[in-house]
Amino acid sequence: MTSTVTRPVGHLLREWRERRRLSQLDLSIRADISTRHLSFVETGRSRPTPEMILRLTEQLDVPLRERNQVLLAGGYAPAFPQHGLDAPELAKVREAMRLVLTSHEPYPAVVIDRWWTMLDANPAVTRMTDGVAAHLLEPPVNVLRLTLHPDGLAPRIVNLGQWRAHLLSQVRHRVELTGDPRLVELAAELRDYPGGTDAAPPPAEVVLPMRLRQGALELSLFTVAAVVETASDITVDELVIESFYPADEATAQALRLSGRAPRR
């Protein structure tokens, strides 16, 4: 859990509705209930059933972790399990993620959780982080801290202002989605790192790449994120596979060559 549930269930549901910028009429139409009933639930005049809580939180796109919190606030048991990534129940998920990471070589790819903690990575990531301060590579590794910290990749990122603005925007979006106080703290930490805030990509580029100095080379990489859309376990719901792709042929060739080079 990200926080202790202390507020009434109706207050939580209203907060989630307001966070999604929906009126009571909007939500009642989506959830197929009357506006009067929804108003009674939010003000505490009516106690929602667990089925009603799940229907409303689904329509509000509340993450599974927070849906459990709303259920607890209503006096009900959590509906969604949370297994460790190494649990037998998640064996097939681990197998699928490892297949994606391995297949993506020689390009970098990482598996992260909702707080950008690195849970797994392929060897190309290690090659990309050569020279990063040791303390940033001690588990648990946070990939945003690793990227933007002055002892991390930041000094080698040519377009640091643009990339920093992009990553901070991602964190703000996830804070809005989840309301997670741990993410609020992470966002505050990252904002304190130097690096500028140039937000707009150059007009000639269709995606914003991270331009990373690697020895005498300059790598240009963009990212594609993948999630498990049908997750019913909290851990799986929060997993993201972040895959880096070359934005130009010179980068592709450099990564292919580095992938074939013997490791020292």
Rank of each mutant, 00 (worst) to 15 (best):
M97L: 14
R14I: 01
R211A: 15
V224Q: 13
L257I: 13
A200C: 01
T2P: 05
R47Y: 00
P246L: 03
L212W: 06
R45E: 12
L167E: 09
N68R: 05
V125N: 05
V141M: 00
G179I: 01
L54T: 03
S103R: 11
V184D: 06
V132F: 13
G215W: 02
L239E: 01
T178P: 04
P140C: 00
T4F: 14
N68Q: 05
R47I: 10
A216M: 02
Q82M: 10
A124Y: 04
T4R: 14
S220I: 06
N159L: 09
T230H: 14
T147P: 05
G131L: 13
D86S: 11
H37L: 14
Y245W: 14
H11K: 11
G84N: 07
E105T: 09
L177H: 08
V110Y: 06
G195I: 05
R182F: 08
L217F: 12
I112W: 00
E51P: 00
D151R: 07
N68Y: 03
V100G: 00
P48W: 07
A121R: 15
Q253C: 03
R145L: 00
L153N: 05
V240R: 14
L60F: 01
A134K: 11
A226E: 08
T129I: 14
P201M: 08
W115T: 03
P155D: 07
P194W: 12
P262G: 04
E105Q: 14
T102M: 05
L217T: 08
G259F: 10
R260G: 00
E205H: 12
R45S: 09
Q162T: 15
L99E: 14
E51C: 03
L221K: 06
L190W: 04
L99N: 09
A134E: 15
G84R: 12
R264F: 08
P202W: 01
R264G: 10
H166C: 11
R30N: 03
D180L: 15
R174F: 04
P155T: 08
T102S: 12
A199H: 09
R264V: 09
E242V: 09
T129W: 13
E66K: 08
F244D: 04
M52P: 01
I241K: 01
I29Q: 07
T4E: 15
